[in-house]
């Protein structure tokens, strides 16, 4: 148990584009213990989804350069050939997307798609696969699951589709579940159902989970730990309770202060973070948040040193944590 389930070291992802390279992820370290849920928290364009997709190598190879190391269940993902990669996807690591309508093939029923995944990875008979598919639909609490097995994706409501997507992802009992904003497109009353379901399944099946979200509330609901990303870097990491109670990094502080909480005084303006995130068309050696930071000093524009550990928390900022 001492080995982490997912171990990412100095991950750098660069996309080639017509306008030149985009440094989407710039030196990310992550560890995920077995059975743990990590919330990858950040705003659009911060590299959280890119990081996730890199774990399964889902980026188009000819446009992407991935450097660093990714180990999942002890295996080196970046060194894998096509065969090993397809065994990894679905069997060891599975993914749930924001829009299940795009992840399902519209011409096959939900049951057929789950069966297909089960048979590919476990080589079992059609009947066994169907039994498994049914069991999975029941586990994700889809009502009248037997009937839903033969439903097409478009025949289901958004919430049911997302549940079916989860059933598909979990059908081969993956060790790691990657969830990319799976509840963002859902209505409030459905979102909480799906969040609680994911949490329950994760506990039951003993999976590790990485949950990408921009929503602080959602992160609090599901995660044990959180890693806050900004401009392609993890700038703060730690147990979710302590990070949320006492954020260290000025960006995390700003993000929490800018989020509207229930019962805020309306006569008081919100503590908005000035400015907007930088473009990642150039590599930013210094702290990318410095131009927006209220605590920034001259030395903040020097190259950013590696992250510092402090107990169970990690901080990527030159200002001492004790000063906060």
């Amino acid at each position: 148990m001492s080995h982490p389930m997912v171990e990412v070291r100095d991950l750098r992802v660069t996309f080639r584009s017509e306008e030149g390279p985009i440094y989407a992820v710039d030196g990310v370290d992550l560890d995920l213990a077995p059975g743990e849920t990590l919330a990858l928290l950040g705003e659009s364009g911060c590299g959280k989804s890119v990081t996730m997709k890199s774990l399964m190598r889902l980026h188009p190879a000819h446009k992407t350069r991935i450097e660093g190391s990714i180990r999942i269940a002890g295996e080196d993902v970046l060194a894998m050939n096509a065969g090993a990669l397809s065994r990894l996807r679905g069997k060891t690591v599975a993914m749930v997307f924001q829009e299940p309508m795009l992840a399902f093939d519209p011409v096959f029923t939900i049951g057929e798609q789950i069966c297909e995944a089960v048979r590919r990875h476990e080589g079992c008979s059609g009947a066994d696969a169907r039994a498994r598919a049914l069991e999975m639909l029941e586990r994700v609490q889809i009502p009248s699951a037997r009937k839903r097995l033969d439903a097409y994706p478009h025949e289901m409501s958004g919430g049911m589709r997302q549940r079916a997507m989860i059933a598909l992802a979990l059908s081969c009992q993956p060790k790691v579940l990657l969830a990319d904003e799976p509840t963002t497109a859902l209505d409030a009353t459905v979102q909480i159902q799906v969040l609680l379901l994911l949490k329950e399944l994760q506990r039951e099946m003993g999976m590790s989970m990485i949950f990408v979200t921009h929503d602080v509330g959602v992160a609090i609901e599901v995660a044990d730990r959180t890693a806050v990303m900004y401009a392609g870097r993890v700038i703060e990491q730690g147990p979710i309770d302590s990070v949320m109670r006492a954020p260290w990094h000025p960006y995390t502080q700003g993000l929490l202060a800018a989020t509207v909480h229930p019962g805020m005084d309306r006569r008081q303006a919100l503590n908005a973070i000035p400015g907007s995130p930088p473009q990642l068309t150039r590599r930013i050696p210094e702290c990318a948040f410095a131009p927006r930071c209220t605590l920034a000093s001259a030395s903040c524009h020097d190259p950013l040193p590696p992250a510092r550990m402090d107990g169970d928390r990690l901080l990527r900022c030159i200002q001492p944590a004790s000063a906060r």
Binding site: G254, A257, N271, A272, P274, G275, P291, R292, T294
Partner: peptide, 21 residues
């Protein structure tokens, strides 16, 4: 952290960062 009064300043800074490219 400052607040209320800083919104205009914030807006000004908002432009400052994105103008160049």
């Amino acid at each position: 952290m400052t607040n209320a009064s800083s919104t205009t300043a914030a807006a000004a800074a908002a432009q400052a960062t994105v103008v160049a490219p």
